[in-house]
Design a binder for these strands. Structure first.
Lengths: 105, 105
DNA sequence: CGCACCTGTAATATTCTGCTGACAGGTGCA
DNA sequence: TGCACCTGTCAGCAGAATATTACAGGTGCG
């Protein structure tokens, strides 16, 4: 991931910019939880949580995988993927340049 | 700026997450421009540009100052402020903690 | 069987952003 | 006086993001 495209960078930043999603990552840091449990701790509906998790997963911040518990119940666990995102003016210049570059058909 | 509050961090990220605003910073990097000129290069209305500039200024990425041109016309110039924004899972944990902390009345 | 868990999604309402067009005001110059 | 520049703001609208409710499906347990 040497040079990030403007839209890609924008996607990542937007995904992480939401306070709710920041909380999700904070909760999942150090501890992997399944969706329902996470929903309880976040005090939000599962439907809404799915929306947030999808965005985080698309941006590459978290990963989910289905697991069978001891008593045979299917549970989807989510974990945070290690990441470091650094943004400077220079980064942005590069991203914008890479973007307009890719538009040259 | 040792520890950033969750809402503050969210504000900064949201401000910089927009492709349009990324372009603005890219254009202003190395060269300070006045509003009307910037609007022409961005190919957008001044009203819209003001909205973007306001967000960027509130987030601390750019700064604007009024200047008198040689022929006495008032022109508002904008420049990018040097910044480095690094986000990791740890950063977010700290931001969220700082935020809930500040809510303890 | 009924109950308590779980996953997943569709339809819907609500709130936030981005954007346009129009306005009011200022200066210099022919 | 009229034109070409500039700054600054407000009303309004379309679309995106956010959030809720409601549904359909599955498993184990008493």
């Amino acid at each position: 991931m040497v040079n990030m495209d403007a839209s890609e960078l924008s996607g990542k930043l937007a995904a992480i910019a939401s306070p709710q999603r920041m909380r999700i990552i904070a909760l999942l840091t150090g501890e992997t939880l399944h969706v329902s449990e996470l929903a309880r701790r976040m005090e939000m509906s599962r439907a809404l949580l799915y929306m947030h998790l999808t965005k985080l997963e698309e941006a590459g911040f978290v990963a989910g995988h289905l697991e069978l518990s001891d008593d045979g119940k299917a549970m989807k666990f989510f974990e945070v993927l290690p990441f470091t995102l650094t943004v400077t003016a220079k980064t942005l210049v590069g991203a914008v340049a890479a973007h307009t570059e890719s538009e040259k058909v």
